[in-house]
Design a protein around this nucleic acid. Structure first.
Lengths: 291, 291
DNA sequence: CAGGAGCTATAGACCACGTCTATGATCAAT
DNA sequence: ATTGATCATAGACGTGGTCTATAGCTCCTG
């Protein structure tokens, strides 16, 4: 089997028309080039170059070989350039999975500064539920996921992010509740608006109420955090939302938090990556940024 | 600079999805493959494969690299196949320069058996005068030339072929000359048909006559040997032709040789190739055949 | 025409590096 | 648990690629 290094030497010898020039380009000596070409010629049993005192020119057989090798070498050069650009993030892509609300309220600022630093990296945000995001991660369709913890999966490695505090909020329509401390029983007398059934937040609040012996059944069920906020502020009920996501509404008074007589456990947000799988360069730089 | 051998290893590892399989394909051991891949990854600063207990799969960066390297390696394989076919004459071409009459009467039988042995070799016959043929040879447009000797050119190497005997012939119209021995003076009283002015044969006969103090001026001048024969047998004059080329006509009596009182010098035919220039495989095999 | 400046080829020495063997670590399947 | 895959690692070995030195050649030039 022919050593492919020889083709590199052949390429430069043919391209420059001189073994000496090829040697300089390749940072080796002229006898090495001479030797390499000889090896190629011997392994083919064909003469590839005419030698004269001015340099070398290709024989017809050499021309034929060159027509293939030139393309091959150019492809390799392109590959090396591409690898370099992937390395220094002049190209590549970053694929993140998770919920739209976490994208919007948690990682958006990181995405912005990441994009500013590496404008050529294509960003893919892959919206989905936590199980879907885990599945995408395992299938290699995303580099990392942003979800609510805990995640228990031996194949997945989790890095903790911020803590979020969920709470019940209402709009001016229920102003009478402002400042009061409600029991769960009392709360359940009001129309409740919850996020859709398959979300982690929904499951968590359902379990919490069950642990106190209550069952929480929403009047309204929606699939978007924005809608939760919108409906609560319009007075259609009491929404269960993440406090950090409604800081604007709390400030301008279009929503207020309803105090309960129990402590709402905080929920931890985290990043998921595959355990024992190398991260893409783009993804590991993003995680560095977040840390 | 990256050793291109590593791309060969990468190609097989990616193609087979297993370092062990790649090792088998490359007739090396698995640790060597492992080492090679590691080198590639380190020189790019990127991870190219996910490793697991079933084998390896490409990372996104690895997929990108593979998209280039695969094409590159396929081109090299094609090149190697092509070189092999050039070597064993399953492809290639043989370009011969010279005169049509030598093609037809001298090398045709060699060409036939050569073509039978190597049917895939494309044959190019490049008709031209001797100086043209020499020029083609120097320009690399033909591999070898078939011409009348002598050729004096330091760049050209000559191999002697057969000797030919030129002579004057006439058809039945001049039957009275059959068996007689003519002087040059007597011959010149008849209409002479000669080959065109720029041919070697023409120059030779002109010089010969001059050396005896005569000037030979043809009534008819043609550019084809066939026409020389045709016109002589139809009785339009006395043609100067190569005896070996008209054996059929001499036998069937449509032409007869005119005896002269001087000895016509034989003319030597030979092959020309460039000195100190390697022959193409196709050409050297042809010369072997002729010898 | 001698001398110089290119070029490539050859010879022989040397040592880096690619390959090997042996073994470890991990995982999956039996 | 055991077996049999996989890839990774360590360290030894030896080949082969690279080097220096030099020869041979052609072309150019004063």
């Amino acid at each position: 089997m022919i050593n492919y290094e020889l083709y590199k030497v052949f390429y430069w010898a043919a391209k420059t028309g001189s073994l000496s020039m090829a040697a300089k380009s390749l940072f080796i000596t002229q006898p090495s080039v001479s030797h390499a070409i000889k090896q190629l010629e011997e392994s083919f049993g064909l003469t590839l170059f005419y030698r004269n005192s001015k340099g070398v020119t290709l024989t017809p057989e050499g021309v034929t070989l060159y027509s293939y090798i030139e393309k091959s070498q150019i492809l390799i050069s392109l590959a090396e350039e591409k690898m370099a650009s992937l390395k220094n993030l002049d190209s590549g892509e970053l694929r993140i999975g998770g919920s739209d609300s976490l994208f919007k309220h948690y990682i958006l600022p990181y995405l912005e500064s990441y994009h500013q630093k590496h404008p050529s990296i294509k960003l893919h945000l892959n919206h989905g539920t936590t199980p879907e995001t885990i599945a995408f991660l395992k299938e290699g369709k995303i580099d990392l996921g942003v979800v609510r913890l805990p995640i228990v999966d031996s194949q997945i490695e989790v890095m903790k992010g911020i803590e979020l505090q969920d709470c019940f909020v209402a709009g001016p329509r229920y102003a009478e509740l402002k400042g009061k401390v409600l029991s769960l029983e009392r709360l359940l007398q009001y129309p409740i608006i919850l996020f859709s059934r398959n979300s982690r937040v929904r499951m968590a609040i359902t379990e919490l109420f069950q642990s106190y012996g209550y069952q929480i059944k929403p009047e309204i069920e929606v699939g978007s955090v924005d809608l939760l906020i919108e409906l609560a502020s319009k007075g259609l009920g009491i929404s269960y939302v993440t406090k950090e996501f409604i800081s604007k509404e709390l400030e301008e008074g279009s929503l207020f938090e309803i105090q309960l007589d129990i402590k709402m456990p905080p929920s931890q947000v985290g990043f998921m990556i595959m355990r024992n799988m190398p991260l893409s360069n783009a993804a590991s730089k993003f995680i560095e940024l977040v840390k």
